[in-house]
Simulated assay, not measured.
Amino acid sequence: MSKVAVTQDSLVVLEDVEKTYHMGEVEVTALSHTDLVLDRGEFVVILGPSGSGKTTLLNLIGGIDSPTAGRVVIDGEDITHYRQRQLTLFRRRTVGFVFQFFNLIPTLTARENVDFALQLTRRGRRRGGEGESAAELLAKVGLGERLEHFPSQLSGGEQQRVAVARALAKKPAVILGDEPTGNLDFRTGKLVLSAMREVNRLLGTTVVIVTHNQPLAAVADRVLHFREGRIAGTQVNAHPVPPEDVEW
């Protein structure tokens, strides 16, 4: 019997998950006996020092890595024992990623970067409509007038918002952000955070952000504190602060 309380709203379910890495003859436990349930439409911030296990957790949710032990179920799909090909298809269907480094294709415009992601997504669909265009997705993150600009012509915050639009291209069940404001000043960081919060509220997309930045916790519906490979505490914010009001 599962030790975690799963409901019809549960999107992310981890049951007694462990992740161990072998570095030569040394065994390093990055995640230890972790139980976690995240619901659809939640905005979650994961806080913790370097090496605490928070990025490992993100990688397991996103199908970038597989657990050493335990069970990982995302949007009703048990990905625990998936092979690399299966994980690739899972990521394409279900997860959007926003990393600290934008990873945009420098020779493509903002529109073309998002359109490239749309083409990959449509290639994996068996049926259904075309969905939103790259221009519509970029307009959602406030870049409707910057469609034909190349990454070198965009600010850091604008490039990160292109990355958010690209993540939205597949209509993911969950968007995972690994230090998405880490390379940005506080003003542009707020713009990116606002875009992710708006996507969460308007589309009901679950958003999970890993950060070292303590003040960002005020924006979340729920905050997970990580320490030494475990969830050391959970905080629920009854009244999350709007991103534009956060000070850091």
Results as ranks from 00 to 15, higher is better:
Gly129Cys: 13
Leu154Ala: 03
Leu176Tyr: 00
Ser133Asn: 06
Gln100Arg: 01
Arg127Cys: 14
Leu184Phe: 11
Ala69Lys: 11
Gln86Ser: 12
Leu184Arg: 09
Gly182His: 12
Ala69Tyr: 03
Asn113Met: 03
Glu145Pro: 00
Phe99His: 06
Thr181Gln: 00
Gln153Met: 14
Arg91Trp: 10
Val162Glu: 02
Val95Ile: 12
Thr121Asp: 14
Asn183Cys: 09
Ile74Leu: 11
Thr107Gly: 04
Asp185Ser: 06
Leu89Met: 09
Arg127Glu: 15
Gln100Glu: 07
His149Gln: 09
Pro172Ala: 04
Glu179Asp: 08
Val174Ser: 03
Pro180Lys: 01
Gln153Arg: 12
Leu147Val: 10
Phe99Ile: 04
Arg93Ala: 09
Ala135Trp: 06
Gln153Ser: 13
Ala167Glu: 13
Glu130Asp: 12
Leu147Asp: 08
Ala117His: 06
Gly124Leu: 09
Glu158Ala: 00
Gly124Glu: 13
Thr94Gln: 08
Ala165Val: 15
Leu108Cys: 06
Ile79Leu: 11
Val73Lys: 10
Val174Met: 02
Arg123Ile: 10
Phe90Trp: 11
Thr80Glu: 04
Asn103Met: 08
Arg123Gln: 13
Leu176Trp: 01
Val114Asn: 06
Arg93Asp: 11
Val114Ser: 05
Val162Ser: 00
Gly124Phe: 14
Val162Arg: 07
Thr109Phe: 01
Arg126Cys: 02
Thr121Leu: 06
Glu145Cys: 01
Arg166His: 10
Ala163Thr: 10
Arg127Gln: 14
Thr121Gln: 13
Arg71Ala: 11
Thr80His: 02
Val73Ala: 13
Phe97Cys: 14
Leu87Glu: 05
Ala173Phe: 09
Gly177Arg: 05
Ala117Ile: 07
Glu77Met: 13
Arg123Tyr: 07
Leu89Tyr: 08
Phe90Gln: 05
Leu120Ile: 15
His81Thr: 08
Val72Cys: 12
Asn113His: 01
Pro172His: 02
Glu145Lys: 06
Gly96Asp: 09
Tyr82Thr: 06
Ile74Lys: 03
Leu138Phe: 13
Pro151Glu: 00
Arg166Pro: 12
Val162Ile: 05
Gln84Tyr: 04
Phe99Arg: 02
Asn113Gly: 08
Gly157Pro: 08
Glu136Thr: 05
Glu77His: 10
Leu147Gly: 10
Arg93His: 14
Glu112Leu: 07
Glu145Tyr: 04
Gly177Lys: 06
Thr94Asp: 02
Gln100Val: 03
Leu147Ala: 10
Thr107Arg: 14
Leu138Glu: 08
Asp178Phe: 05
Arg123Asn: 09
Thr181Trp: 05
Asp115Asn: 15
Arg83Ile: 01
Gln100Pro: 02
Leu147Thr: 04
Leu108Asp: 01
Leu143Glu: 03
Glu179Ser: 04
Gln100Cys: 05
